[in-house]
Amino acid sequence: MKSQRRTLNTTACLCAGLQRELLLALRSPGNTINPLMFFIIAVSLFPLGGGADTAYLSSIAPGVIWVTALLAVMLSMESLFRSDYEDGSLEQLLLSPQPLYFQLLAKVFGHWLVTGLPLVLLTPLLGLMLSLPVAGYMPLMLGLLLGTPTLNLIGAIGMALTVGLSRSGLLLAVLVLPLSIPVLVFGAGVVDAALNGLPVAGLLAVLGAILALALSLAPLAIGAALRISVN
């Protein structure tokens, strides 16, 4: 066999990183399915515990779905850097000549594709469970579509800081949940506004702006945190 070395541009390298992330998700399905199961089960506890009063359920629906989504995202972050840290792949990632910023962005995006996106797609089912009025579905899903990537990026910073600790779960929550408050406030606000017949474009734009901010700054923070953690 003859060597057929092809030089790859940065985009192709990022696709390889993304492909690896998806392969890993396929090989350990528990890491992606468990947070989703948590999301479904935790939301379904509210009608069971809070009574079947439709008006009451629909009034708490936006908040319940957003808070549970936030917690499910935090749970899913645990697997983002854990195996790479333990087997040393993280060291190789930090020593790779490709720009770390884009490699981390590809990694978090891959993680969002297998955890965040399915979560967004599941929300209509949960909306039904909480008798969310029809007008609320579209704003809820759009809000989550813009909000969950931000939560993933913020969670990745916390995970990068705590990956060196054997039990990072609670510390991760303490570090990350306060930073997620703006997303939560505007995300649940979008649904409330829609249910009251108010325009939602402005609130969605704020969520988009927060996402843009996270996309541009979070990978830098994740990189710096990882360099501290591998040391």
Binding site: R5, L8, C13, G17, S96, P97
Partner: peptide, 8 residues
Amino acid sequence: ASHGFSDD
């Protein structure tokens, strides 16, 4: 790929 090439 993380070193910028592909060569199966």
